[in-house]
């Protein structure tokens, strides 16, 4: 008699439930995307296909400013977070196990565990006192905050890549007269590059997407794209928001696809 293994997928109604979950996940997004092409001013009544709201958003000065600001903050934050995460990953993996290793992991991953609103309030208060003391009002606060919460996202793929890397290669480099710096430059870094790129992309997406911390930390006139959209929703809602969301979605999907291609196991 052929053995039949238990399989969740074989349970009655499984397909129906799975389908329901997919509909719940994707239907709202599909609706959002569809209405971004609406010809009329409503986000609920279809009035024919048009790119009107895209051109509207494109020409909107506030949207342009917010987009540029988002990209600047995300670029700085992902660069800083990835650099720090690379150093942290090298420090935690390229050596024998040490006391307090778990503690270090917890410290690095702190932003994943502390509720974001708590961090946001803490940063608001902390930065407020610095603003008073220094008078500096620039984007530095947003960059610093974003860098901090992006570190664990950059750290994880870099660490995964490092753990899959044979340490004998670095030993071999040292054996072949490479100084520690040359070993890093000619062996560790090139082999680690896909992990670093993946970490940077993930950090970029996470920064681009942030609302809560940005909302609390930003000074007046420092809207990023998500906080601008939040502000718009409080007023008249037009398909312009749909158009911006769709563009943001497209960018995110693009970056995440690149991320998965980079982290995919190659044989």
């Amino acid at each position: 008699m052929a053995e039949r293994r238990f399989s969740v997928a074989g349970l009655p109604g499984f397909a129906t439930i799975a389908l329901g979950v997919f509909v719940c996940l994707y239907l709202p997004i599909v609706t959002l995307v569809v209405y971004s092409f609406n010809g009329g001013p409503s986000i609920a009544v279809w009035q024919g296909f048009s790119l009107h709201w895209y051109t509207e958003a494109w020409g909107n000065r506030a949207v342009q400013d917010a987009t540029l600001r988002s990209l600047i903050v995300a670029a700085w934050a992902s660069a800083i977070a990835t650099t720090l995460a690379t150093m942290a990953a090298l420090g935690t993996t390229r050596r024998a196990a040490f006391r307090g290793q778990t503690f270090i992991y917890v410290m690095i991953n702190q932003p994943l565990m502390v509720p974001e609103i708590v961090t946001a309030v803490a940063l608001l208060i902390f930065f407020a006192s610095i603003k008073v003391a220094t008078g500096y009002q620039g984007l530095g606060y947003l960059v610093a905050a974003h860098s901090a919460f992006c570190i664990p996202f950059a750290y994880l793929p870099i660490r995964a890549r490092l753990e899959g890397m044979d340490m004998t290669l670095e030993t071999a480099a040292a054996d072949l007269y490479a100084t520690p710096w040359q070993t890093f430059r000619h062996v560790t870094l090139p082999l680690l590059a896909p992990g670093i790129a993946a970490g940077a992309m993930l950090a970029f997406v996470i920064s681009l997407d942030d609302v809560i911390i940005t909302e609390f930390v930003k000074s007046g006139g420092q809207d990023t794209l998500p906080t601008y959209m939040l502000g718009q929703l409080r007023r008249a809602v037009t398909p312009e928001v749909n158009a911006i969301s769709t563009a943001l979605l497209a960018l995110t999907v693009l970056l995440l696809t690149a991320f998965f291609l980079l982290t995919r196991k190659r044989n």
Partner: peptide
């Protein structure tokens, strides 16, 4: 090296 450790 036993595993050769060639740089991939």
């Amino acid at each position: 090296f036993q595993s050769y450790a060639l740089f991939p």
